[in-house]
Simulated assay, not measured.
Amino acid sequence: MANYTAADVKKLRELTGAGMMDCKKALDEADGNVDRAVEELRIKGQKGVAKREGRSAENGAVVSVIADDNTSGVLVELKCETDFVAKGEKFQAVAGRLADHVTKTSPADLETLLGSEIEPGKTVQAFVDEANANLGEKIVLDRFAQFSGVYVTAYMHRTMPDLPPQIGVLVELDKANAELAKGVAQHIAAFAPKYLAREDVPAEVVESERRVAEETTRAEGKPEAALPKIVEGRVNAFFKEATLLGQPYALDQKKSVQQVLDEAGVTLKRFARIKVGI
C-alpha cells in the first residue's frame, strides 16, 4: 500500500480540485508522490485539473440546519474561489442541499459524507464536482459539524452584509436556554476559543506553553526563586485565553463564561466554530 497521509490527500485536492476518492487512487498509483499523482490525474483527463491547479478556495459560506425542537443541528462549510460566486443563489443552494443531506444521513466523517449518495447513483463528491463544472470555480467541501442532545442551536455571523455567513457556531447545552445559548455562541464567534475547558487542552500543548513560559521568564532575568510562580501565572493566562470556559464573557467582562453558565444552572456540553477558509 502506498505511503501517504491525509494531508497529502488534502494537498492534492487543493492542487487539482479532484474528488477525494480520485486523489486517493492517484496517490496509490503514484506510490504516495503528490507531484506524480497530479500527473496521473492529468493523464486520466480529470475534468478541470489543469484549469484549477494552484487555485485557492478561500471564499464561501457556512450554512446551518437546526431541528425544530432544537435537539440536533449541523454546520457545513462550502468553499469557492470568489465572493461573487459565494453570494450567488446557485452556490448557496448547493451548500443548503449538502447541509440537509448531513442532517438526514449523519455521516461519521468527511470521507463517509463524500462517498454517500445524495441522489440515486450520485455521490456527494460527484454532486460537488457537478457544482464545480456548473459554477466554473473550484468548489470544496471539507468540514462539517453535527450535534444532537437536549438543546442544540447555532449562531451565524456575516462579515459583510452582502455575503452569506462566513462564521458559524454550533452549541449544545444540557437544558434549554435560548438567550444564554445565543449569547455564548456569539461570544465563541467573536473570541474563537480553541478548547472548551482546561482538561480538553492536549498535554503536549500545555507542556509547550509551560516550556515557552519558563524560557521567556529566564530570558527576562527573573529571580530563580520566583520562576515557578511566574511560569504558573503565564500558563494560567494561556488557559484563560484558549479555553471557552476560562474566557471573560463578552456580555459581562467581570465574569468568566464558566461563571455565567453556573449562575444559570446550565452546562455547555460542546461547541464547534467554523470560519470560511480558516
Rank of each mutant, 00 (worst) to 15 (best):
E215T: 06
E179Q: 15
L180F: 05
L170H: 07
V201E: 04
P165L: 04
V205I: 14
R198G: 12
T216L: 14
V169H: 02
V171E: 03
V184P: 06
G221L: 10
A226C: 02
E214C: 01
V171G: 07
V206Q: 03
E172R: 13
S208R: 14
G221M: 11
D174V: 07
A226L: 14
E215I: 03
P202D: 08
V205L: 02
P193M: 08
V201S: 04
R210M: 07
N177Y: 07
E172F: 07
E220N: 12
K182H: 14
E224H: 02
V201G: 06
H187P: 01
R210D: 11
A203W: 03
L180E: 11
P193T: 11
Q186C: 05
I188Y: 07
R210S: 12
P223V: 03
K194C: 00
P165K: 02
A176P: 07
A190C: 09
N177G: 12
A190G: 02
R198H: 11
E179G: 12
A185G: 11
L227Y: 11
F191R: 14
E199S: 14
R211Y: 12
V201A: 05
F191K: 14
P193N: 10
A189G: 09
K175P: 01
A181D: 05
E199H: 12
G183W: 05
G183S: 15
A189F: 04
P202G: 05
K175N: 13
P223C: 01
E172A: 13
S208L: 14
D174F: 10
L173W: 09
L170S: 06
A181F: 12
I167S: 02
D174C: 09
F191A: 14
A178G: 11
K182M: 09
E224A: 15
V184A: 05
E220Y: 01
P202Q: 09
P223N: 10
L170P: 03
E172H: 06
V171S: 06
A219D: 12
A190P: 04
V169W: 01
E199P: 08
L180H: 01
V206K: 03
F191G: 05
P202S: 08
A181C: 05
E199K: 15
A225H: 10
E179F: 00
A178P: 06
V201D: 08
P165C: 01
T217M: 09
R218D: 06
K182I: 10
P202M: 02
Q166F: 04
L196E: 01
E172G: 00
A203D: 12
